[in-house]
């Protein structure tokens, strides 16, 4: 039986052997690993990109005070990006399950239609949720658009729900009973965190404070975009998004205000995405094979830089 940390190691080894960068978690709060710049920004433009990362994610409204056996406001996603998406991407994915000790011939594995869209990031894709004996263990998405820009070549995004998958592997009904290693349980590490953070998210966060954080991050992001500081600007966009989620959890958003804020974040995300693309064009798409760089730079320059002026 794999412990939680062994499952992560197994996936790291598996994707390492398949030529992925194994990155470390990104250190700003985000609702999903899709918001990691390794996904959201790197899928933009013509450069190839293959990576895997274990990312902590936060969804304040999903807090359940540690009382629900499978819902948390802080959890982990194992995120893989394969760009361009290989022809046998589903088979590779099935191999990753084999590596985790799941023999597909002894289970019922299904790819069930599930499309994804994020209004905040102006991004969408189509794909499936992968069912393992009726349990949704992975989201599988062919990224079609990010930050309003067409994703070309298309990136495959494979997102494993680590807790769910491990609950399955370890045959336990509560996330808190997962063995993190041979002796310490997931509950020891995160149960109290769930109780406290749920209280913070729903009861104790200062509405005025989180609102101000949102506004400040918004303002800072705009300034940084002006200065073409892509990464600092993107971090502020993520902070906007997280503080928006906190405001939402606290129930202090009127409906018009809610939509208004979503649109504000989306606008920033669009700008950052374009800024990032410009930066990569200027850098000459260093991840492309040398033979393709010149032509691609010209193509993108004509489409995105010249057209603007």
């Amino acid at each position: 039986m794999l412990t939680f940390q062994q499952a992560i190691q197994t996936l790291n080894q598996f994707w390492d052997r398949r030529g992925c960068l194994i990155l470390q978690a990104y250190d700003t709060e985000k609702g999903a690993s899709t918001m990691n710049p390794g996904t959201f920004l790197r899928v933009i433009g013509p450069e190839p990109w293959n990576m895997a990362v274990t990312d902590p994610c936060r969804r304040p409204t999903d807090g359940r005070y540690g009382e629900n056996p499978n819902r948390l406001q802080h959890y982990f996603q194992y995120q893989v990006i394969l760009k361009p998406s290989p022809d046998d991407v589903q088979d590779i994915y099935l191999d990753s399950l084999r590596a985790l000790g799941v023999d597909p011939t002894q289970h019922d594995i299904r790819f069930v239609e599930d499309n994804w869209a994020s209004p905040t990031l102006d991004a969408w894709g189509v794909g499936w949720e992968v069912w393992l004996d009726g349990l949704e263990v992975t989201q599988f998405t062919y990224f079609q658009q990010a930050g309003g820009l067409e994703v070309k070549p298309v990136a495959a995004e494979i997102t494993y729900g680590l807790e769910r998958l491990c609950m399955y592997l370890q045959n336990v009904d509560s996330v808190y009973d997962l063995m993190w290693n041979d002796t310490v349980k997931y509950g020891e590490l995160y149960h109290h965190n769930e109780i406290e953070q749920s209280r913070y998210n729903f009861e104790e966060s200062d509405p005025e404070y989180v609102t101000r954080l949102f506004e400040m991050a918004h303002h800072q992001a705009e300034t940084l975009i002006e200065k073409k500081l892509v990464m600092p600007a993107y971090e502020q966009v993520l902070k906007c998004s997280h503080n928006f989620n906190l405001m939402d959890a606290r129930g202090i958003l009127g409906r018009d205000e809610r939509m208004g804020n979503i649109l504000k974040i989306r606008k920033l995300a669009l700008k950052v995405a374009l800024c990032y693309l410009e930066q990569r064009i200027e850098m000459g798409f260093p991840l492309l094979p040398e033979a393709q760089r010149e032509a691609q730079v010209k193509l993108y320059r004509d489409r995105y830089l010249t057209a603007k002026k």
Partner: peptide
Amino acid sequence: ITISNNDTPSAVSEITQGNERVLRARLAD
């Protein structure tokens, strides 16, 4: 009753248990 896409006899008990566990969690919710 679930419709599996796999009729391997040795797989039936795992598939059954897996589905039972998922439903249990859903019903608990």
